[in-house]
Amino acid sequence: MAKARLRATPPGPTWDKASQASFFDDAFLTLTGDRPDFGSVSAPTRAEATDSPPSESAPAGGFRWSSLVSPDTLVDEIKDTKGLVAAAVASPSDFKGGGYDKAREGFSSVALAFGVIAAHDGDVRWKKDAVTARDLFARVGFNCKVGTDQSFSESRARVADLETLLDGSPLKTQAEREDDFLWSQVAARPALMSRLEVADEFLGGAIASKSDFTKQVEKVLHEIEMVAVISEVIQQKDFEYHDDDGYRAYAAAMRDAAVKAREGATKGDYDGVRASVGAIKKSCDSCHADYRS
């Protein structure tokens, strides 16, 4: 037999004046509006309960970078580029003799990767340092348009910063930013076009046969994802031709083809990847015919 629930003894009928003044004599005569139905109100979800402003790691537009690129590809892009930029700044003579152009392309790729890491919706290495790294490497990438003593010194400093991050230590260098962030500030369009050409050359060889594709499928996936990233970035506000419908159509078609190629690569679908890479090249060639840098 269930035990009877014990209830607290109600207070006595006599109230002092201070306590009585805290209540209405008749609440139904004083309050207005319909009586709320608390039973119909659902509990807020965790996302609804959070009232923090969007950060650079969760862009206001809500774009999910994970639909284009994995954390591993972004990290590997940075690691793989370190050797290129280090060789380009090995000596002042190498740098001024043409290495500055290789450094420009390499630093721009690193800046792009850090930019996407900062905005990525997944858990990616270096995310805490990504905004600072993005701005530092973007600046040196733009400054490497020419080979001067100043751009050489800055490049050597950035290589040291890159080694610091790769060794697992946080950045000590601080970036200066006065304006709001724009993707066009990460890398110049010609540098990104150069990165696309690298991807195009590799993919063309990697899909020459099914055996070549199978041997290099991980690298194929890496290059496809970088194509998808660049195709999305060059459509962003303030990029050259970003407001040109024809240019945006080419870029969107290339991105969509890269997404299909990505899906095929993850499944080992050689025929699907080959067809999608062909569509990427078609969009790229058509765009170059009209908007060659």
Rank of each mutant, 00 (worst) to 15 (best):
F137N: 00
T148I: 07
S151E: 01
F142I: 00
Q20I: 08
L74R: 02
M1W: 05
F23W: 13
A88R: 03
A27W: 12
S231V: 00
V124S: 00
A199P: 08
P71T: 05
D244V: 11
A43Q: 14
K127H: 07
R248Q: 14
R64M: 08
R125Y: 01
S283D: 13
A111V: 01
G99S: 08
Y270N: 07
D243C: 05
L165P: 02
P13E: 14
L74A: 03
Y250L: 12
Q216C: 07
R104A: 04
T214C: 10
S52K: 04
S93T: 15
L196W: 04
R158W: 01
H120P: 07
A251T: 03
E201G: 14
A160G: 10
G98D: 10
D25G: 11
S276L: 09
D149P: 07
K128T: 10
E56P: 00
T173K: 12
A49D: 15
K210M: 09
D244Q: 11
F202M: 12
A58H: 06
G12F: 09
S91H: 06
Q150G: 06
F24E: 14
A257F: 10
S151D: 02
K260P: 05
E154D: 14
A253Y: 07
R139T: 02
D179M: 14
S42H: 15
L84R: 12
A249S: 15
M226V: 09
S55D: 06
P92Y: 04
F137P: 00
S184K: 10
G268P: 05
D121A: 06
R5L: 14
I224R: 04
H120N: 05
P190R: 13
S52Q: 07
M1P: 04
A119W: 04
G97C: 06
S67A: 12
S286T: 06
E105V: 09
E232R: 10
V85L: 01
Y270Q: 08
R255P: 07
A47M: 08
L221T: 11
L182T: 10
V217G: 02
D80K: 08
G141F: 00
G168A: 08
D72P: 00
A265S: 11
R64E: 10
V140I: 07
A257I: 06
E218F: 04
D179N: 15
V273H: 02
L68A: 03
I117V: 08
V69C: 03
D243M: 05
I234H: 00
T148P: 05
D245R: 14
S19Q: 12
E225C: 02
D123P: 00
F239G: 03
Y250N: 10
V277E: 08
L68R: 04
K281R: 15
V159H: 04
E48A: 10
T30L: 14
L192F: 02
A130I: 06
G33H: 12
D180W: 05
V217W: 08
D37L: 15
K267R: 11
K3P: 01
R177V: 06
Y250T: 03
D135F: 02
L29I: 15
R158I: 00
S194Q: 09
G98W: 09
A43L: 15
G106I: 00
Q185V: 00
D72N: 07
